[in-house]
Amino acid sequence: MTTKLDVRVGREAAYTVVTLVGELDVISADGLRAALGKLLLEERVRLIVDATELTFCDSMGLRMLLEYADRATRAGGYMRLAGVRGVFRRILTVTGLHAAFPLYDTVAEAVAADAPN
């Protein structure tokens, strides 16, 4: 069985958007791990993960997101999740992991969280 996860990275001046399309699981996780690792090496630590088109996420995917959120935070940044819907939102809520990530309906809202009031 193969699963497909497309990882798209958009670098802006103040933040980086990582868009996930498809399924994030033990089989497809390596591409995301490589992308997030590279971003942290580049000191791109203000990360917004756009999960609008994420159709599935298993425990390995959750663990990896938590690991890289922690690494980004320790480096002085953050990981925010945008577009979390359906089963993925339910999993985050039921497990209590929604508290580990700031959740936003859209990437624009996640970006606006940095704007001064």
Rank of each mutant, 00 (worst) to 15 (best):
Y68G: 05
A69E: 05
A69T: 00
A69F: 02
D70F: 12
D70P: 00
R71P: 09
R71Q: 15
A72K: 14
A72E: 09
T73W: 14
A75R: 15
A75D: 11
A75N: 08
A75F: 12
G76A: 12
G76D: 13
G76R: 08
Y78S: 12
Y78V: 08
M79C: 12
M79Y: 03
R80A: 06
L81T: 06
A82K: 05
A82F: 01
G83K: 10
V84W: 01
V84K: 13
V84E: 09
R85V: 01
R85F: 00
G86M: 08
V87W: 13
V87E: 15
R90C: 07
L92Q: 09
L92P: 05
T93H: 11
V94W: 02
T95M: 03
G96A: 07
G96I: 00
L97A: 14
L97V: 05
H98E: 11
H98G: 03
H98D: 14
H98T: 01
A99M: 05
A99W: 00
A99I: 02
A100E: 10
A100N: 09
A100H: 10
P102F: 02
L103F: 00
L103S: 04
L103W: 01
L103A: 03
L103M: 07
Y104M: 05
Y104D: 02
Y104N: 04
Y104P: 03
D105A: 14
T106W: 01
T106E: 01
A108E: 15
A108C: 04
